[in-house]
Design a protein around this nucleic acid. Sequence first.
DNA 1: TACCAGGAGAAAA
DNA 2: TTTTCTCATGGT
Length: 226
Amino acid sequence: MTTTALRHESDHDAALHRFFRDLQERYGPQHWWPADSPWEVAVGAVLTQNTNWGNVEKAITNLKRADVLPPDRILDLPIDALAAHIRPSGYFNLKASRLRNVAAWWQANAERGFDVSEPLAALRRDLLHVKGVGEETADSILLYAFGRPTFVVDAYTRRVLSRHGLVAATATYGEIKALCEAALPPETGSYNEYHALIVRVGKLHCSPTPRCANCPLAWHLSDVVS
DNA sequence: TACCAGGAGAAAA
DNA sequence: TTTTCTCATGGT
């Protein structure tokens, strides 16, 4: 790698770092993930796939009211009954099946005691083997349920960062995750806040259309790195 | 009415 | 390997 490339990379890291720091200063702590337990985080992570969080809250409320939120209760429920409870979250047949898969994984690990010392990469690979758990869902569970320092990338992350010239619009999940993790110290607390902040600013100002409505972060456009 | 929301997996190209 | 399709409710 050339010196120029190194400096370029370092400038890019600095721009990303400054971007997240400014989000933090502007919007303050976000207090994520909204859940009463690590398991509820995992349930929310599945139910929120391509779905508005308000709808997810309705589905989780249904599960709580019926007293069937815990993983063992979910596994005991007929699939149709589970789907009926989570209906407000959309894709309910698909998500009922995915929720069962995650509950089975959770139960199996709980029975032999979650190994908190397991290397992050190994735990992540293990989670990704669960059908219905993709990269974002796995990282959300690892970060917000298990407190492991893994950066969560979602549709807002790609859109917000690419519109500010900090990642390519065509970058893959892994590429964006690697760029952010290279630029930011691996700290659970800050990864927690940064993802929540991205979602906050994404909801406020960075919808697909209209583009960049009243974006307060325009100064970062001067940081564009090609 | 049309669009959007804290994706993932299968099928098609 | 990359792109397209399917899954679905509820708010704006």
